[in-house]
Nucleic acid binder design. Sequence first.
DNA 1: CTCTGTGAAAACATTCACAGCG
DNA 2: CGCTGTGAATGTTTTCACAGAG
Lengths: 232, 232
Amino acid sequence: MSDRRNIPKPTARRLSLYLRELSTRLEQREVTVSSKALGKSLGLTDAQVRKDLALLGQFGHPGRGYAVADLVSSLRRIMGRDRDWRVCVVGAGNIGRALVAYDRFRREGFNIVAVFDAEATMVGREVGGLRVRPMADLAKVVAAEEITLGIVAVPRDAAQQVADALVAAGVEGILNFAPRRIEVREGIGIVSVDFTVALEQLAFQVAGGSIEDSDGGDEDENGDGDAPTSNV
Amino acid sequence: MSDRRNIPKPTARRLSLYLRELSTRLEQREVTVSSKALGKSLGLTDAQVRKDLALLGQFGHPGRGYAVADLVSSLRRIMGRDRDWRVCVVGAGNIGRALVAYDRFRREGFNIVAVFDAEATMVGREVGGLRVRPMADLAKVVAAEEITLGIVAVPRDAAQQVADALVAAGVEGILNFAPRRIEVREGIGIVSVDFTVALEQLAFQVAGGSIEDSDGGDEDENGDGDAPTSNV
DNA sequence: CTCTGTGAAAACATTCACAGCG
DNA sequence: CGCTGTGAATGTTTTCACAGAG
């Protein structure tokens, strides 16, 4: 039951993985799971799993393990997944189009309801069932469609400007795919994904580097880096 | 000069960000940069930047800062970016096609030289200048084209199998976009990126969570999670 | 005076190990 | 027994703060 404000950053990243794994197990009708089994699927120790899950409240049943269904609904609530999100994508280039067409988002409750592009030649085209709209419509559409999350899939040099426009339009969080740091004001969520950084982390490993953990999302402030991600 | 084996995981993630930022500054003809200025661009403290860069050897010039060009070439070497990489993409769906068409990879020295797909209807089609090949050709092409990195952009349930095939074919590292953990044997690099996890970390922030840092890549073993990434 | 490099301290995160529930 | 929840121990990362170089 504990609120989410006290959750350590590394744990928050792992919670997504627990949810992903547990959802799969729920679909397979598994009723309970032990910290050891869960940890094994995710490459974590059983102690780590217990410590993490203990933050959500008392769930485990000694001798039995955790009730999968209960854990899933608890995790969904904590992660803000107990409701649907309305999302827009800015940038109808390769990445933007792939994201709009990415079925999994919709299935997971992230509904992409609008796509924008600055190019006049792109505006009006159909992408994944949506008509591409001009940037001029951004504020109007974000308000009308009650969009709360924006995805930035534009070139690096336009990214900050687009992010500013999204925040001005009223979105509460931004998922950034442009290869640069985006600054947002206090209270706005920000997570970045940089494909080149991800490939570079891989090159680093292959070329002799170590690296062990994964990556995660970031809050505005501390403004850390872009984590491509890790294993799992 | 120090070798890369002793670099802490969080630092390795940040090195990519330093390189990204410094490359931009180099293009803009900046000659030196202070740890404070670099940190500001990246949302890090100056002390953090100095500690990180000190791992690469002695670069700073007291009173002056760091020589941008020297740092860039040193970082490139450490990250394994001082050579070109030959890469293949498995899965010619939305994500696979977007990655093949993603120009930045080529500009950064990651050359996608082959695309594979299991669907007969997809094989033979042209994607970003490449002809889609059948999975049966995987081993042959990986060897002939001297491919060292593989990108997995297939549905979840095929991902592990595809990863196994890539490793068997001889790749040394895998960038995984499927929403599940991939296991690879010791010595093979693995980094995962999960869009849904990234959006979920954002939802978590917006719904009230904290999270401060970014993500990163992961090594096989410790098998941690998938970090979507953070800011910057 | 500016700015690095770095020990020492503080903060944070993970692992251990065990008491106790069912 | 099997398995959780959790203090205590350990390990890791970040921050501090300052000596010394240019």
